[in-house]
C-alpha cells in the first residue's frame, strides 16, 4: 500500500513537472517572440533607439528565462538562442540593418521551434 502511495506521489510530481514545463516554455517563448518582434518592427520603420532598447530587453529577459529552462531543456538548444540574441544589440548599434533583421528572424524561428518541441504532438512523439 505504501508503494502505491509512492507511485501516486511520483505520478503527480512527474505530470506536474511535465505540464508546468510545457506551460512555462510556452509563456517564455511567447514573451520573447513579442519582444524580438517589437525590435524587428522598430528597426524596419527606422526607429533604431527603440530597436536597441527591445534587443537589450530580449537579451536580459532571456538570461532570466534561461535559468529555469535549462532545468528541463537541452542546454545546446538554449545556447544557440543565447548566441543569436547576444549579437542583436551590437548589430543595432553598428547600424547593420539587414543582418539585424535576419538575426531577429532566426531567433523567432528558434523560439517557435523551442515551443514546438515541448508540445504533445504526433510529430514530436514519433
Amino acid at each position: 500500500m505504501k508503494r502505491m502511495w509512492a507511485v501516486l506521489v511520483l505520478l503527480a510530481l512527474t505530470l506536474t513537472i511535465s505540464v508546468l514545463g510545457a506551460r512555462h516554455t510556452r509563456a517564455v517563448t511567447l514573451q520573447m517572440e513579442r519582444t524580438v518582434q517589437e525590435a524587428k518592427t522598430a528597426q524596419e520603420r527606422g526607429d533604431e533607439d527603440t530597436a536597441l532598447a527591445f534587443s537589450r530587453k530580449a537579451v536580459s529577459d532571456w538570461r532570466d528565462a534561461h535559468r529555469v529552462l535549462c532545468l528541463y531543456m537541452l542546454h545546446d538548444r538554449l545556447e544557440d538562442i543565447d548566441q543569436t540574441l547576444a549579437v542583436l544589440p551590437e548589430l543595432c548599434q553598428d547600424e547593420q540593418r539587414e543582418e539585424f533583421l535576419s538575426e531577429c528572424d532566426r531567433s523567432l524561428a528558434q523560439f517557435w521551434y523551442l515551443n514546438e518541441s515541448e508540445l504533445l504532438t504526433l510529430d514530436n512523439l514519433f
Binding site: 511520483l10 537541452l74 545546446d76
Partner: peptide, 25 residues
C-alpha cells in the same frame, strides 16, 4: 553528458518505476 538536463533522465526513470509498480499491482 552535462549538456542534457538532469530531469531528462529523472522523469523517464520515475515513469518507468510508476509503470512497473502499477503493472506488478
Amino acid at each position: 553528458d552535462t549538456a542534457k538536463p538532469l530531469l531528462s533522465g529523472l522523469i523517464p526513470i520515475a515513469v518507468l518505476v510508476i509503470s512497473e509498480i502499477t503493472a506488478s499491482g
